[in-house]
Computed example of a mutant assay.
Amino acid sequence: MKIAVTTASGHLGSSIINRLKATIGKENTIGIARTPDKAKHLGVEIRKGDYNSKADFISALEGIDAVLLVSGMDHPDNRIQQHRHVIEAAQANGVQKIVYTSIYGAEEGNAFSPIVASNRQTEADIRQSGLKWAIGRNGIYIEPDLEYIDTYIAEGGIINCAAEGKCGYTSRDELAYAYFKLLTEDSLQGGTYNLFGETITQQQLAEAINRHYNTNLAFKNISVDEYIANRQDALGDFLGTVIGGIYEGIRTGKFDGRSDFEKVASRSHKTLDEMIGDYRLVV
């Protein structure tokens, strides 16, 4: 069984490829990347695939049994058609199964919602494709917060607009395990699964970081408008608005829900402390 993974050079794509290499073998694992040279270090066959080119994916998915479609990072208006290029190429090549990395969150009500809504449209396109399928809805990655610790220290704490809202965090390694299961376990076909660990507040996140890094961080809440403006100044209008919308969603309970990780993985999701410990071992 040959399995292809899109955006192979990205953090999540490469984590999933490494998991597949260790389980089904490098000869059965294919990476697809817009710039193949950026994924050569993964040690598997890398094929060219730009989400804007259906022709790329017609070639890239030749001889593939299952494909993992990693959600693109473009503007929501563009992503639906980009994902359709992969779905249509999979149909044309007789790919048996498609698995999609979607995201947990609210389809309306905050600045992140357009991203979520575009993912929901891709979910609908996959369900209607005639292919076997499974969909994961990812929680928020823990890694960006850990990569940002020096900035948190410099700023005097974790500062955002999440208030007392809870969020289900996950890690790329935990997601890689879950998507390996979704790609290879027939019993999970036709399901949509929320993938994250126990939901926590930003103050609980700060306390966990303090335990592992001997820091003295605290959480400071600010208004939604102030936080979005802050992120726009730092990251530009599009990405700043998206990040601001995520924390607005946390504030209003849109990331506090039920996880299906244990059903998918046949084990509990790692705890926050375990994820931070794992991260420290490899960084």
Rank of each mutant, 00 (worst) to 15 (best):
E207P: 03
T170M: 09
T215D: 09
G165S: 01
K166L: 14
Q204F: 01
A218R: 15
G197W: 04
T192Q: 14
I200T: 10
Q204T: 03
F196A: 00
T192R: 09
A208L: 05
L217H: 03
L195C: 00
Y179F: 08
I200E: 13
T192I: 14
Y169A: 11
Q203C: 02
L182S: 00
S187K: 14
G168R: 02
Q189H: 14
N221T: 07
I209D: 11
F219A: 04
E185T: 13
E164T: 10
A176Y: 00
T215Y: 06
S187P: 14
L188D: 08
T215V: 06
Q202H: 13
A208H: 01
T192V: 15
L217Q: 04
H212E: 06
E198K: 13
N214G: 14
C167W: 11
T199N: 12
T184S: 02
L183T: 06
F196T: 00
K220G: 15
R211N: 11
D173P: 12
Q204K: 09
A208N: 08
K220N: 12
Y169H: 13
Q204L: 05
I209C: 00
K220V: 13
E164D: 15
A162G: 08
Y169P: 10
I200W: 07
Y177L: 15
K220D: 09
L217G: 04
R172I: 09
E198Q: 13
E207W: 04
R172H: 11
S171L: 02
T192D: 13
N214Y: 11
E174W: 07
E174S: 13
D173G: 14
I222F: 10
N214S: 14
Q189A: 15
